[in-house]
Amino acid sequence: MSSEQQEGRWPDASIAEVAEEPYYLPVGDEVEIFEAAYARQLPVMLKGPTGVGKTRFLRYMAHRLGRPLVTVACHDDLTASDLLGRYLVRGDETVWIDGPLTHAVRTGAICYLDEIVEARKDTTVVIHPLTDDRRRLRLEKTGEVLVAPPEFLLVVSYNPGYQSLMKNLKPSTRQRFVAIDFHFPPPAIETEIVVHETGLDRATAAALVKLAGLIRNLSDSGLDEPASTRLLVYAGHLIRSGVAPRRACELAIAAPITDDPTVQAAVRDLVATVFPA
């Protein structure tokens, strides 16, 4: 079955051959670490808040390593069958359809389980046998046991900041991964990213990064998620298309990060502090 057909069966997953090199500006030694982990067939966990370049990084690595990237967006209704595959009834026949994880194992792809904490515990356990050195995947229903080829790599992402307490990753799951920490890039690098992504002039991009720095100081004061690089990129795009900077920041930064009216007002004040009317 071709991958297009496969993909059509997966509501929560997608598959991509990353043909063109995605733009990714390394912040530390994450590229080397990832390559080392890949060479050693060690599963990788990308840890960090939303919008700091985890997905972008992985696309970049998939391209670099020349492997297809299978991405699964995890959520709390995701069952083991959604990952492994299931029988479907077609007229008088039944057909087995590989799930994204099985597909990735079969084809030696990089399989990215995005926001793994969101998945239910009984779903996360199916990846356990894949993460130890036997690298095996058991399909109970077909009776198959797949052994992952060396090209296969399991990657999960995990945002330790926001999840409610109930959704903490079990140590038994967590400890199966090499963790790469993603933080907000230092100002110079983040400015560079915004410039590259939006084509904004350097001064305005630097001002956006400065604003983000101020807002991130509020993370212990009731802000759920601090302003991410992604939001700066969004604001940058708006400014590039002619929206006044203050307005762009209110729309793309202040409004999305919080519903709390006090925090909203404070963030708007910060916008007005960094950007002239």
Binding site: I215, N217, L218, S221, T262, A266, D269, L270
Partner: peptide, 14 residues
């Protein structure tokens, strides 16, 4: 006060 408390925290890094 509520807004200024956040404002000063942001500007001074807490």
């Amino acid at each position: 006060e509520g807004v200024l408390a956040l404002y000063v925290t942001a500007l001074s890094g807490g």
